[in-house]
């Protein structure tokens, strides 16, 4: 009996062992990968759809009003050109003023932001010093602070000396527009420049120094040319951020027409008086301005990379 049973037991053991040593299946990887990318695409696509839909809604609204104006007019083609909400907005001298002020103030605040962001980003990226973590945290304050609080803090700051001496020429004047935009935009430029310098190999700078360069020569001849893309990105980001700035402007520079009115203020003022058509038209002008700056800097950046 024992003799008969033992081969069967052995066979059973062998089967169990071969079952154990058999490689385990990994499941349907192909299907799993497809589901993974489908989920990624759906989640990401929802946000992209939201952005595009918002812009399309603005454009459609303006187009609808243009068609309405054309159908009510005896000369539809002429009306389409001259009586669409954007043309009406552009013919308004107050809006033209706000476009110019926006262009000038955004460019100035973006240039100032880059000028300030370069040394801060460089020092944070290359050197360790006491209080570095604190400085890093302070530089994030304008990003996390509610915009209205930035404006209010600026307003209060200009009540104290030495700022109080120039308060008459700054507060509720054009310099206040630039300062309010700069205060927030610069924080974004600093983040961009720090990350740019983090990605530039410090070895190049060390070689330049060993070749006889001073720190400033190594920075100007080697580091800065390598940071061109980062500079362009910082400028674009600061410019776009300045264009969208509203809260600090309202508190610190006011919303006086033909004085401290920029495009974001115009949208607010037009909405306040119930002129949604003008508000949407100005919004589209802002979209056009931001996209133009983005495209120009991207093309410039790509051309630099190709050369």
């Amino acid at each position: 009996m024992t003799d008969d049973a033992s081969p069967i037991r052995r066979t059973n053991t062998n089967v169990a062992e071969s079952e154990k040593s058999k490689p385990l299946p990994v499941g349907n990887v192909v299907l799993s990968n497809r589901v993974f990318y489908l989920c990624m695409a759906i989640i990401g696509g929802t946000y992209v759809f939201l952005i595009v839909a918002m812009l399309l809604a603005d454009t459609w609204y303006v187009a609808e009003k243009t068609i309405d104006a054309a159908s009510d007019s005896a000369e539809p083609w002429k009306a389409m050109l001259s009586e669409n909400p954007i043309s009406i907005a552009l013919s308004d001298s107050k809006i033209r003023y706000s476009i110019w002020l926006s262009l000038i103030s955004c460019t100035l605040s973006a240039v100032l932001s880059v000028i300030v962001a370069v040394p801060i980003g460089y020092l944070l990226s290359r050197h360790d010093f006491p209080g570095k973590r604190l400085l890093d945290a302070i530089l994030d304050i304008p990003i996390v602070l509610p915009p209205l609080v930035v404006g209010l803090s600026l307003l209060i700051l200009f009540q104290f000396r030495p700022f109080a001496f120039i308060a008459r020429d700054v507060v509720y004047q054009i310099p206040a527009v630039i300062l309010a935009q700069f205060s927030v935009a610069c924080a974004f430029a600093v983040r961009t420049m720090k990350s740019t310098f983090d990605h530039i190999d410090p070895r190049c700078e060390q070689v330049a120094i060993a070749l006889g360069s001073s720190r400033s020569q190594a920075f100007g001849w080697v580091v800065l040319p390598e940071a061109t893309h980062g500079l362009l990105t910082a400028f674009t980001l600061a410019w776009a951020r300045s264009l969208g700035e509203f809260g600090p402007l309202l508190i610190f520079a006011g919303a006086t027409r033909m004085k401290t009115e920029v495009l974001s203020t115009t949208v607010f003022l037009e909405m306040n008086v119930g002129d949604i058509e003008a508000a949407v038209a100005v919004s589209l002008i802002m979209v056009f301005g931001a996209v133009t700056v983005l495209v120009i800097t991207r093309i410039w950046g790509t051309r630099e990379a190709l050369l």
């Binding site: 070895r203 060390q206 070689v207 120094i209 060993a210 070749l211 006889g212 360069s213 001073s214």
Partner: peptide
């Protein structure tokens, strides 16, 4: 390092 006159190939 700029005054040492050392050529460096990393």
């Amino acid at each position: 390092p700029a005054l040492r006159g050392v050529g460096y190939v990393p």
